[in-house]
């Protein structure tokens, strides 16, 4: 590289400029907008003209009757999703791995990825129809087998589990890809050695396949721990209703309702800040652990 390298770099800065500006306006300016969590924000007076109220909004949030329940719902739903999101794809990947015929394997995969690419609006529409207690296909079948209809989307004891199962329906196929890729990277000579040592397929799975997958499993668990406060806004928002707020209202839906339905802008921002800060800690720690133990890098 010759002297005056900055001149050669100028086009690079010009190229990246539009992207940098857009991210500045719509990601970094809102970060500064967090000041409204400490104000009594009035849109007409803006971020510079609204009165400062210190921690009043946070005290108000802490005194809200539902807040503990909402935080608990968020953690409960996302923890269950996290566990299901590890166990189901690994099981399916292991089963697919036992299939000799590649065409069959690919066919199954092609079918089960499909819901991943559909939005929760579409899938919500589908689920609202098939889970309806009166006309829905699922309950018609339950009744046919002599059971009582279950209101999956309107019963607080069922709702969180409905969320977990339907989320797995949408995502397990897609998550399986990562594990299948890890399986193909296991050295075949390990299986040969195990066979010579007299290990059957089950023993091979326990002592070769699973240890071979451990790094990727650890990585996926670590990365998903950072998402512990994201219980899935899109899904919950399109499936919940006031009757299941008790078990299904999560931090993100609460932020939406306080902020954009009730127009309590500052209170909503305070809840959002609480979530952002905790999420930031979790994500940073999870990325750090993933970097230390699995040599994972974002870029």
């Amino acid at each position: 590289m010759k002297q005056g390298g900055w001149n050669r770099e100028i086009p690079l800065y010009l190229m990246i400029l539009p992207g940098v500006l857009l991210v500045f306006v719509y990601s970094y300016v809102p970060m500064a907008g967090i000041v409204m969590a400490f104000q009594h924000f009035v849109p007409a007076r803006g971020w510079f003209g609204s009165n400062w109220v210190g921690l009043d909004n946070f005290r108000y949030v802490a005194a809200m009757p539902d807040i503990v329940q909402v935080v608990w719902n968020t953690i409960f739903i996302s923890a269950m999703k996290l566990i299901a999101g590890i166990v189901v794809p690994i099981t399916i990947a292991l089963l697919l791995n036992e299939v000799g015929k590649n065409g069959f394997k690919r066919g199954i995969q092609t079918l089960v990825y499909l819901p991943h690419f559909m939005s929760w609006v579409i899938l919500g529409g589908v689920l609202i129809d098939i889970l309806s207690p009166t006309q829905g296909l699922v309950n018609l079948m339950i009744k046919q087998f002599g059971g009582h209809p279950i209101y999956f989307l309107g019963d607080n004891s069922w709702f969180p589990f409905t969320l977990v199962v339907t989320n797995e329906w949408k995502e397990f196929g897609f998550s399986t890809i990562v594990y299948l890729a890890a399986l193909t990277n296991i050295n075949p000579s390990l299986y040969e050695a195990a066979t010579i040592d007299g290990a059957n397929r089950w023993k091979q799975m326990l002592h070769v396949t699973l240890p071979g997958m451990t790094p990727i499993i650890v990585l996926m668990v670590t990365l998903s721990l950072g998402q512990i406060l994201n219980a899935g806004f899109d899904q919950v928002f399109n499936l919940y209703s006031p009757v299941v707020y008790e078990s299904g209202d999560i931090i993100d839906t609460l932020i939406y309702r306080i902020g954009l339905v009730d127009a309590q802008y500052s209170v909503s921002t305070a809840v959002g800040l609480f979530k952002s800060v905790i999420s930031f800690l979790f994500i940073s720690v999870s990325y750090y652990l993933a970097y230390r133990f699995a040599n994972y890098r974002i870029f």
């Binding site: 719509y26 500064a32 409204m36 932020i255 954009l260 921002t269 930031f280 990325y287």
Partner: peptide, 14 residues
């Protein structure tokens, strides 16, 4: 921006 965000309302105001 993937690690930290201003949240819904500040984005809406922006």
């Amino acid at each position: 921006t993937m690690l930290f965000s201003g949240g819904l309302i500040p984005l809406y105001m922006t």
